[in-house]
């Protein structure tokens, strides 16, 4: 698997030294080259980013202070009303609760599973590549496709899961009525698709742990579980934090799976599985209220920022703890 990665970067001395050239002009040119080139190289990214990234963000802020008429493409300035409206909606708070709940149901079991699968893959197994590819297969399936398959399996009356449950004498679960279970179902879709991906990231981190640690621990008489707890897990901490942060940013934006969970795509009659982005879509493209949708987009961004800051503080703490130990 590392055949490409380990290839030597470039033959360092392949070109013969050049004869010296006329000094002054070439030097000036070279200095100019040295100064300007970096900016030339980064400019495609930054120009594009300014157009498709920065401008829309600023424009979203502007629209969020307006009552926008999509068909006539014009707005009226109304101040913070849209923000106040959003924050005054019980639906918003339900959506916020659901988003976090689905996130927790997906992140926690997923990371635990990923750590254990990675630990298994980290053993000296036959057909490494096969197993690694095997756990990653779900990743290539589009979330929409995953959601269609799982929504089918999680049908209230005629779904596979409930059929099995009732066959063994358990009560059927109301996947589309009970908020808790709808979150479990949606989180399952997320877990199906992402566990393998995170497994590989954690596996990479595990393989980076110097072997000597284990050797030494073995000499000290530490068992496999002990080694896992006191060597593997602590070494995974930075990677885990990285995984958690990316999972948070992605998880708080969840849309595809709840959208496809039933045929209406609006989060259920009692907003059981309405998420922030689903709510944003409904306000923007169901009710055609772009001002409110823009305000909600900014609120979502602020939430992500706040969570990011909390992450940052926690990370700092943990790193310091590491240092003290």
């Amino acid at each position: 698997m590392t055949a490409t990665a380990t290839r030597p970067p470039a033959p360092p001395t392949s070109r013969p030294p050049r004869p010296p050239r006329v000094i002054s002009f070439s030097q000036r040119l070279s200095r100019w080259d040295l100064k300007v080139s970096p900016y030339l190289y980064i400019s495609p990214f930054f120009i594009m980013f300014a157009v498709v990234g920065l401008f829309p963000i600023a424009f979203t802020a502007v629209i969020s202070f307006m009552d926008w008429d999509l068909v006539r493409n014009s707005g009226q300035f109304i101040g913070f009303d849209q923000y106040a409206w959003i924050l005054g909606q019980p639906q918003f708070w339900t959506a916020l609760r659901n988003t976090f709940s689905i996130f927790l149901f997906s992140a926690v079991p997923q990371l635990i599973a990923a750590i254990f699968i990675a630990a298994m893959l980290d053993r000296n197994i036959r057909a490494k590549t096969f197993w690694r590819m095997g756990v990653l297969v779900p990743f290539v399936m589009a979330p929409v496709a995953v959601a269609l398959i799982f929504s089918n399996m999680f049908g209230d009356n005629h779904g596979l899961v409930n059929n099995i449950l009732t066959d063994v004498g358990l009560p059927a679960i109301q996947w589309h009525k009970d908020a808790f279970w709808s979150h479990v179902a949606i989180a399952t879709m997320v877990n199906f698709r992402w566990t393998g991906y995170n497994t590989l990231i954690l596996l990479a981190a595990m393989q980076a742990i110097p072997r000597d640690y284990y050797e030494a621990a073995t000499v000290d008489g530490a068992g496999a579980f002990r080694q896992f707890r006191s060597i593997t897990l602590p070494s995974l901490k930075p990677t885990l934090i990285f995984v958690i942060i990316t999972a948070t940013i992605g998880g708080l934006q969840i849309f595809d799976e709840p959208r496809m969970f039933d045929q209406f795509g609006r989060g259920g009659a009692a907003q059981q599985w309405l998420t922030i982005t689903l709510y944003l879509y409904d306000i923007g493209w169901g009710q055609w209220n772009f001002g409110r949708a823009a305000a909600l987009a900014w609120i979502l961004f602020l939430i992500i920022l706040i969570i990011g800051l909390i992450n940052l503080l926690v990370t700092r703490r943990l790193v310091r703890d590491e240092g003290r130990r």
Binding site: S151, N152, G155, D156, N157, H158, D262, Q263, F264
Partner: peptide, 12 residues
């Protein structure tokens, strides 16, 4: 059912 057009509704 409460509403129409769900998978279960079609199946029923």
């Amino acid at each position: 059912y409460a509403g129409q057009w769900s998978d279960d509704w079609f199946a029923s």
